[in-house]
Design a protein around this nucleic acid. Structure first.
Length: 773
DNA sequence: GATGAGCGGATTTTT
DNA sequence: TCCGCTCATC
């Protein structure tokens, strides 16, 4: 019996079709929660078992490590006993490219020990280039130059190509910086994220032999999240395939949310035109959410023009209604959300099944404070990454310079950390000498028997030099990787320098270093020697490296290409905060979509461009479809942003959700007659309904705002005769504490109470959330 | 070469 | 409001 026969009951008819269609180009439009990972993994297993396709003929690419790992693990389970053998290559775009570059980078001047520069290293490299070029006083904002260069790279344009394309003086400046940047990066044996893709593409394009070799190898290519591919990834894909390659791309155009980073939704929208015989299979059955949640999601996304038509459906019931809560201000919103989360957890929901989403990371703060106050354990995904902490980056820089003697950024970071009395001028001096000698920076330093600087930096230089000298042989000696780092830390006296100055911050740093060391240990325990990529490449530099060197190389690459969402796996008893972007691909029993206000979500900056407004709408769709059972939409009538108070009007997305799937659980709208704000509020509202008043003035006149608001009406109360509560009743609320009922009125199936809370003012709350005292 | 006051700017960020 | 960067000072 074939694999597919055995497992066919585990797939619905569309999924089965997607798994079975192994030949030719296939586009699988996989709606949210429709089981696309299942399709991908079963497809791989089907190829391996039923077609006897060799492992190495399959290449599967994802965007995140997490997705790659998940696919990898699930394939492994499907393969069962046979999985003692190697698995197919399932990896991120960037890792695939890094590996290709490590094997064949010699053809463009990169050895196999190149390092990957992160965002901040890239930026300082740009700054260095600008300084080096001494170009008058033109628009020299490093940030915007950097992003311009990034855009070019994402379009597959090299430094030489853009030189002729420049249309403005800013473009010209960027083109010049781009060129210098490229040569400086090469000199430092460093690449950035975009380079990985660009250079892999260039290698293929310029080297037909390489291209043919890989095309021969990869008979089946699978790509996940295809809606997020950018131009260079698309071009790279085109290079990877020939007419015989069986390519299968999976994605959901409705979840394309990285357009601002260069992702081209056209790649998926036009796939069937680009690949003529492509078969399009739509997965529309949803296995995640309740009917009401899907209904809301459908109403939100259907307003978009640029999309493949599809409608999610489910066999499960309608479920609960989506809960809408308008709170008085941002602090009330946080109190409500955290209070509700707590209540649900008490009632049996697992804490790690509760998620709080927001449009901008800065909004996490209020929720954090509230969680601390209410003693609810939480964790934040996004914002600061572990590997971006100063102490970790310092240690990584030391490791980088051991691996790659040309790494200028690592040199700059390490030379005076811990303090060695070597300042800016000395650093420039050393770099200058090294550059004119033609030696990689650390080798030049090792070669100096006499310190090239005078004064108090002299001793420091000597120490640094002897450290490098030790490192040079340590990297190629046998011994454990952990021991190497321990010895390194001892030599540079990093820990001592922190201990010398006891402060809360330094205690944290020491703790982080401990955590780092245990990550290193874990890495070493699970480490396997890398397999050889493709055939041996004569042009590649000698690959006879010590095991320590190989570990070092692998470790640094992994750390460079890692992200935050990866930490999600260690499940724990905490609620999770994250941006809507970070939520993509995840699911939770309970989701809170917070700060649902115009100007925040959709973001004010997206309002002057229709395609960007559509992207915001997709982001909202992503948020809604993360929820399995319970979904809350919250907003604040009044919000403190950047120190000033704003009266944001409700997000347009709220209006798009049909009233029959909604229930209002708290309504503290500022225009409510029973609830009066400071007299200024109505005036203020007209003046600045958006958080960002500048952007707003351009995109949405106040008058329009007013009109729009008037047809926004959640408040469908009808007075009824009998209530559970009446004026004067003493009640308790999970987030607002004790209060006294002022008024009761009907709201949907429940009753709405106006309550005065001790110390928290007047609020409206649904009766089901309070208890009698 | 290290330190603080003052100013400007402040989305989203799979890699 | 708050954070990071620049520039002036010791």
């Amino acid at each position: 019996m074939s694999f597919l026969e055995k497992h066919s009951t585990e797939l619905n008819s569309k999924q089965l079709e997607a798994v079975r269609t192994v030949d030719g180009p296939v586009l699988v439009l996989a709606g949210a929660g429709s089981g696309k990972t299942r399709v991908l993994t079963y497809r791989i297993a089907h190829l391996l078992f039923d077609y006897r396709v060799p492992m190495h003929s399959i290449l599967a690419m994802t965007f995140s490590n997490k997705a790659a790992r998940e696919m990898h693990d699930r394939v492994k389970v499907l393969l069962g006993d046979q999985s003692t053998a190697r698995l197919p290559w399932i990896s991120t775009f960037h890792s695939v490219c890094a590996r290709i570059l490590r094997a064949h980078g010699g053809r463009m001047g990169y050895g196999s020990d190149f390092v990957i520069y992160d965002e901040s290293e890239q930026l300082s490299m740009i700054k260095t280039c600008i300084e080096k070029l001494e170009m008058g006083e033109r628009d020299l904002d490093p940030q915007s130059i950097h992003s311009k260069i990034g855009n070019w790279k994402n379009d597959g344009k090299t430094a030489d190509e853009v030189a002729d394309l420049a249309v403005s003086s800013f473009d010209e400046t960027c083109a010049i910086v781009y060129k210098t940047y490229t040569s400086q990066m090469l000199a430092a044996q460093a690449v950035d994220f975009d380079d990985l893709l660009l250079y892999a593409y260039k290698l293929f394009k310029d080297n037909p032999d390489l291209k043919l070799m890989y095309q021969e190898q990869w008979k089946y290519i699978l790509i996940d999240e295809f809606q997020d591919t950018n131009e260079i990834q698309y071009k790279l894909l085109k290079e990877m395939i020939n007419p015989d390659t069986n390519i299968c791309v999976v994605g959901d155009d409705d979840q394309s949310i990285y357009g601002w980073r260069g992702a081209k939704i056209e790649n998926i929208l036009q796939f069937d035109q680009q690949f003529k015989k492509a078969k399009v299979i739509k997965l529309e059955q949803n296995y995640r959410s309740t009917g009401n949640i899907l209904k809301a999601a459908a109403s939100v996304i259907s307003k978009n023009q640029m999309r493949h038509e599809k409608t999610l459906w489910t066999e499960s019931g309608e479920g609960q209604k989506i809960r809408m809560a308008t709170l008085g201000d941002d602090r009330d919103e946080a109190a409500f959300v955290v209070g509700e989360a707590k209540r649900l957890i008490k009632a049996g929901t697992r804490a790690d099944q509760v998620a709080i989403f927001y449009r901008v990371n800065s909004l996490s703060r209020g929720f954090e404070e509230e969680c601390l106050k209410q003693r609810l354990p939480y964790r934040i995904i996004g914002g600061f990454r572990f590997y971006e902490r100063k102490e970790i980056k310092d240690i990584l820089a030391y490791l980088k310079i051991l691996l790659n003697p040309a790494d200028v950024m690592a040199f700059r970071r390490t030379i005076n950390t811990p303090l060695r009395g070597i300042g800016k001028t000395s650093i420039e001096k050393i770099e200058g000498f090294a550059a004119s000698s033609g030696l990689p920076i650390s080798q030049w330093i090792i070669a100096q028997q006499v310190a090239p600087i005078t004064g108090k930096g002299r001793e420091g230089f000597k120490n640094y030099r002897s450290f490098l000298e030790w490192g040079q042989q340590a990297v190629d000696s046998t011994g454990s990787f952990v021991d190497l780092i321990v010895e390194m830390l001892r030599r540079i006296k990093y820990i001592e320098s922190l201990e010398a100055e006891p402060s809360e911050e330094n205690t944290d740093r020491l703790e982080n270093i401990r955590e780092f060391m245990s990550a290193v240990q874990e890495f070493e325990e699970n480490w396997n020697p890398p397999e050889v990529t493709g055939a041996a490449d004569a042009a590649a530099p000698s690959s006879s490296s010590s095991e320590t060197r190989q570990k070092l190389r692998d470790f640094l690459e992994r750390v460079s290409l890692i992200s935050d969402v990866d930490q999600l796996d260690d499940v724990s008893d905490q609620v999770t905060f994250m941006s809507f972007h970070a939520a993509k691909g995840l699911e939770f029993h309970v989701c809170f979509m917070t700060a649902m206000e115009e100007g925040l979500f959709p973001s004010a900056r997206s309002l002057d461009d229709y395609s960007r407004t559509e992207e915001e709408r997709r982001l909202c769709y992503v948020g809604v479809t993360r929820a399995r059972e319970k979904l809350y939409l919250t907003r604040a009538s009044r919000r403190r942003t950047f120190g000033s108070i704003n009266f944001n009007i409700p997000s347009r997305f709220l209006k798009d959700i049909p009233p029959e799937v909604l229930e209002t659980v708290v309504d503290e709208s500022f225009d409510d007659d029973s609830y009066s704000y400071e007299s200024a509020s109505r005036f203020n509202r007209q003046k600045s309904s958006f958080g960002y008043s500048k952007a707003k003035a351009r995109s949405a006149p106040a008058q329009q705002t007013q009109e729009w608001m008037s047809d926004f009406d959640f408040d469908q109360r009808v007075e009824e005769e009998r209530f559970t509560y009446q004026k004067g009743d003493r009640i308790a609320h999970p987030s607002f504490g004790d209060g006294i009922v002022q008024r009761a009125e009907r709201m949907g199936e429940d009753e709405c109470l106006t309550i005065v809370f001790a110390g928290r003012g007047v609020k409206k709350v649904l009766a089901k959330f309070v208890t009698k005292r």
